[in-house]
Nucleic acid binder design. Structure first.
Lengths: 229, 229
DNA sequence: GTCGAATAAATTGCATGCAATTATCTATTG
DNA sequence: CAATAGATAATTGCATGCAATTTATTCGAC
């Protein structure tokens, strides 16, 4: 795999991953200079990546005041989870109607990976938990739905990083397994119920307000420079 | 009102409006140079605006090949309308549960404006038809829902510009009136039915594939330089 | 006359530089 | 000692320049 992605793409991917794995915490300032220097590129590329992250809702850019990892409020958190329930119900409905041939296998395989990551207690598990839901959306085949689900899932990660217990995974893996079962049986009632319960559990976990600060940005970024998994 | 928006903001707004009013048709190339020259700024600002429009789905940027007004396929069109039905149902449900005090008045006022614009047969009517749906989303108070609805409505405009009859408004105003009635009565059943019918009508209108090309970009842009209504 | 290769023009990706805005520090005063 | 005003440093917004890639054009062969 040669460098098929442009420089700003690479920065975008690295920053995104760092945020989703909660290495960069909400509120962390992201100066264009530091990012550019760390990645060995100019501010222009860094700025580009920050703009895209802003449109994803992962960073907030205030005019003339720079970018920072977004700090969702509790009010915004409720909005995100409300809309996420709406969208994930749609996913479930569609998948109960029509599931791709290897869909179930792909889901099972993903959960296995989650289990491996969990016992390694790596920050990967946080990201994988979110990607399970993105995989569900991908099985519907709708690019737009994938895009929207990705947005709410990303924002959920951010909310957990802000309000949840530190390093808590987003989802219970067992609930993922139950959901797969219901999808295999094409039982939208049960599947929706599990999903609702699942998301409520996530939302409740966001109620224990917990805070600690003091990150050193550039060391974190150095760990995230390689875009590999 | 002094110039509170930055230069790239102004370009973003103008381009967006030009696309939504179907002055810039799908497929039209948008070179950074031309845009910058037309607006009297550098390529940097133009590029910035194009990046944001790309994340809205209004323009497509291919690496090293530049930006163009997005040309949604029929497949993507179906995805958009499917997801739009899902989201607008959510809007209806919420508004039937809780409608802000002046909500109905605002809706009626908007429809009146639509009627005025219609008899003037201006391209404004196209944009206003979409903004009715955005106004509905705004009444829910959820920023994220507003954002998502704006995206699908924008994409719908693009789809109509590509596949619909030229200069056809997106929506029937009478259906907007009926919908307001159902909302006033807090009747989610009726309201959802009207909305579904309404959106299906829009979708069907997109089945008459109609094409004509040959725009002169910079003259169009000149008309859209002033950001006023 | 058509097809294909080489060259020229146009366009993007990125880096750097400068002015403007914002944040931080210092010093002076009440 | 707290508070405020001024000055200094840091950071963003934007313009310009250059190399690399893409697109258009020209020229030659068949």
């Amino acid at each position: 795999m040669s460098t098929n992605l442009s420089r700003s793409d690479a920065i975008y991917a690295s920053l995104r991953r760092a945020i989703l794995e909660q290495a960069l915490k909400p509120g962390t300032k992201l100066p264009e200079d530091s990012i550019g220097d760390t990645f060995g590129v100019s501010r222009t590329s860094a700025r580009n990546a920050l703009l895209r992250l802003a449109s994803d809702g992962l960073v907030e850019i205030k005019p003339n005041r720079g970018a920072a990892v977004a700090m969702p409020t509790l009010e915004e958190a409720e909005e995100v989870f409300a809309l996420r329930r709406c969208l994930e119900r749609e996913v479930i409905e569609r998948l109960c109607k029509r599931m791709p041939r290897d869909g179930i296998d792909a889901l099972i395989s993903h959960v296995r990976e989650e289990e491996r990551a969990l016992q390694a207690s790596s920050p990967r598990s946080i990201r994988l938990a979110g990607e399970f839901h993105i995989l569900l959306a991908e099985l519907t085949g709708s690019k737009l739905l994938i895009d929207f689900i990705s947005q709410v899932v990303s924002r959920s990660s951010l909310i957990l990083a802000r309000f949840g217990r530190p390093h808590s995974a987003e989802c219970g893996i067992d609930e993922h397994v139950q959901l797969i079962e219901a999808l295999k049986e094409q039982d939208p009632q049960t599947a929706s119920r599990i999903m609702d319960h699942h998301l409520h559990a996530v939302e409740d976990r966001a109620k224990t307000d917990d805070k600690d600060d003091g990150p050193d940005i550039i060391e974190i970024l150095n760990r995230y420079m390689s875009a590999s998994d």
